[in-house]
């Protein structure tokens, strides 16, 4: 029964979003390696407690995954190789950074596209307004220049 309770607690922790707890400590030669490890495990998602990365998750599977990350790092694997290894076992789901491919190109390119389209629309609005200003202007060019100057001066004083 004790084990069943343990599993229930785990279930509760997963279901309601839960806390982080450091459960093991690894030794690193340099502070940079330690930071690299921390960054890596923060970018991998726990397949069990799915709202947590494996750095924060208490699920046993997260511990196994951290072990694997550490082991591969010690073997000299690159970040891509380490992430690739875990993706090969658990699927694309475990990487928080979606790969750039034809399914996700829209996702990655969206901000750039939106900003370009948006700026183009604003430019259109501004140009149209300027055109209207010219068309509707019933004043002679000299008068217009005077008014413009007056307005500009006034604006700067305000």
């Amino acid at each position: 029964m004790r084990n069943i309770h343990g599993a229930l607690v785990l279930l509760i922790l997963c279901a309601f979003g839960a806390q982080a707890e450091v459960s093991e400590v690894y030794d690193f030669d340099t502070r940079a390696e330690e930071q690299r490890y921390q960054n890596l495990i923060a970018e991998l998602r726990c397949p069990k407690c799915q709202n947590q990365n494996i750095a924060d998750s208490n699920a046993p599977i997260s511990k196994d995954m951290r072990d694997q990350v550490y082991r591969l790092m010690k073997n000299g694997a690159t970040n891509d190789e380490i992430v690739g290894d875990l993706v090969g076992r658990f699927g694309e789901f475990v990487q928080y950074k979606p790969p750039v491919d034809k399914r996700t190109i829209l996702l990655w390119a969206f901000p750039a596209i939106a900003v370009v389209v948006g700026v183009a629309i604003v430019a259109g609005v501004a140009i149209r307004s300027r055109k209207r200003e010219k068309e509707e202007s019933a004043l002679s060019p000299e008068e217009l220049a005077r008014v413009k100057k007056m307005l500009a001066d006034k604006d700067q004083q305000a």
Binding site: A42, E43, R45, N53, G91, E92, F93, V94, Q95, Y96, K97, P98, R103, T104, L107, F110, P111, A114
Partner: peptide, 27 residues
């Protein structure tokens, strides 16, 4: 829209049967 798309994209891909992705902090 970026936040909305980032949040809903996995749902859409799953619906289209194009795999299960996670979109998180690095993105």
């Amino acid at each position: 829209l970026l936040v909305a798309i980032g949040t809903l994209y996995p749902l859409v891909l799953d619906y289209l049967d194009m795999g299960k992705l996670s979109i998180g902090e690095p993105f």
